[in-house]
Design a protein around this nucleic acid. Sequence first.
DNA 1: ATAAAAATCCAAAACGTTTCGGATTTTGTT
DNA 2: AACAAAATCCGAAACGTTTTGGATTTTTAT
Lengths: 338, 338
Amino acid sequence: MTTIKDIAKAAGVSITTVSRALNGYSDVNEKTRQKIIEIAKQLNYSPNTLARGLVMNKSKTIGLLVSGLTRESTKDNFTFEVLAGVNQYVSEVDYDMVLFNTTSTKQREKTYTQLCRERRVDGAILQGIRVDDPYLQEVVESDIPCVLIDIPIESETVGYVTTDNVLGAKKAVQHLISLGHRHIAMINGYEFAFVSEQRLKGFQEALLEAGLPFHEHLVANGAFKEERAEQEAVRLLTQRPEITAFFCASDLMALGVMKAAKTLGKRIPEELAIIGYDDIILASYTTPPLSTIAQNKFAMGYEAAKLLIEMLEGKAQSRVRVLETELKIRESTVKNHG
Amino acid sequence: MTTIKDIAKAAGVSITTVSRALNGYSDVNEKTRQKIIEIAKQLNYSPNTLARGLVMNKSKTIGLLVSGLTRESTKDNFTFEVLAGVNQYVSEVDYDMVLFNTTSTKQREKTYTQLCRERRVDGAILQGIRVDDPYLQEVVESDIPCVLIDIPIESETVGYVTTDNVLGAKKAVQHLISLGHRHIAMINGYEFAFVSEQRLKGFQEALLEAGLPFHEHLVANGAFKEERAEQEAVRLLTQRPEITAFFCASDLMALGVMKAAKTLGKRIPEELAIIGYDDIILASYTTPPLSTIAQNKFAMGYEAAKLLIEMLEGKAQSRVRVLETELKIRESTVKNHG
DNA sequence: ATAAAAATCCAAAACGTTTCGGATTTTGTT
DNA sequence: AACAAAATCCGAAACGTTTTGGATTTTTAT
């Protein structure tokens, strides 16, 4: 493995000069620089990032901390798309990304800070962690720069990217209302997510603005789980037969509601309209295809990485990025659409 | 940031002793070891992996090299599940994983070896690269340990994990034959994948063993693309109306064939049976649900990581792992199943 | 021709760890 | 008590880079 020392010897200069030549400093003669570059190429040199990181005290590596990346969690590929986006930006600016998977067992033995410092990441992106996750507290207190996805916490060292979940939910519900629905139920996610809170708010705002009453009993907790949402939908539909539409805080839960409808023999969308949230791949492949509020998850990852690296390099204007959502109308709300 | 030097000072011993105490060497008194550990904990010490990697000449990091991780490639989450598996094993044995995304533009500027050496990975896993990828050649020639997924190349430093694709395809086709189908078409993937070759072989073997003729013209190239498969299916079904079943080398292509059937007004499975390969998430959500040959992609990633790390630590018995596949019978081949 | 300025180079220290070879102390044996 | 053996410790070098602060050479201005 060739080092700058080898190059220095071959070129008859000091290692200082090699380093400075390769790093584009101006205090090295252009002719010697060319010679050094030539020799480096010949010797098939590649710099040792460990050594560099050691002396520069940064690794040009960021950590992506996801929660519960298991065999099962692969169904909703939210995590994956975010990851792809992060990876995209990171590789554009020549950083590396290392993936941390936080399982509850692991967390007990190693703190967030330890994890980050040990792997020498310059900063971290956190995705999919719940607001009651012990890591979250630590993040805010630690001095390691980090960007949260869908958790609105901001400090000197932490920023976040999210979408406007209130508006997104509102758009979904307004769509249902515009179709004539007056008795709309909502399946929300668990309470340990900010998005649940906000989507509920959007739901309420839409009703209010349309002059419709809000009923606590028309909101159920589906815990972001397909089966759980199915059960809740069955319960609601039997207890409250006046319901003609469901707004679900995730597509996965909407799938559960679709199953419930099928079980109860309700035709979609004629007898029951359903709209989800996220626009996961599955959404466009179900029968009928699912209307939803699309989040650009790839963009969320991309922007998170961009924000983090801007923060690292001290050129972030603000520490918050809010992305747009888009209403996708498919046949689970409107017959013969598309 | 505390270092072993700080600990040494606080404990009144040399840095050598601190290092050896923390690393469990036997030539340090148990009492002083406890003291050192205690102090390390107090000072909130975490070792600098860069420094360690520098002197030990290994990083305990492996690279996962995937091809074309873009916004679009997210549909078939093969890559993601493999990644999850890799991540799982890697974190079990306290390694790190860094993700490399090889786009064609990047490849021109940096060779595989450069990529790996620069990031100081100890070894690499390659997934989703085509057999004509310039990287592949390099891998075999380089001395960096690596594990390929679904590409059967073996050498002193390279191993692979795969499934038995011949057998898998055979099982699928035998299933169709057992249902009485005699005119079975195949939509294969592009020729730049070993799996295409092998699945074709399985297709032929199944026909042969059943005493059925093999017709070249019943095999089309769907290039692993949904749209392309749809076009080819339409073409085949109109040119060869005797076809009653399709075997597709990927689920994504099977989705294309389902669309084609829908367009041509053919009922599935009564008039046309369809079986895919992979068992992607979508497969169980389509109408009708898609029969397929399931590959445990998570396990593939897990085993790949395991094999690689065994190779790195010199305790790999063999450098090949072949996993099992499973026939999943759903309603695209058998009515009212499940 | 000479002084000042600019261009070009380099030795040495530093980053935080591991490890080699040996030094010192303690324990065991006779 | 004396010596050997075992246990415990440590100094210094090494890993490959960047950077500081100056040294040397060349160019420019007078």
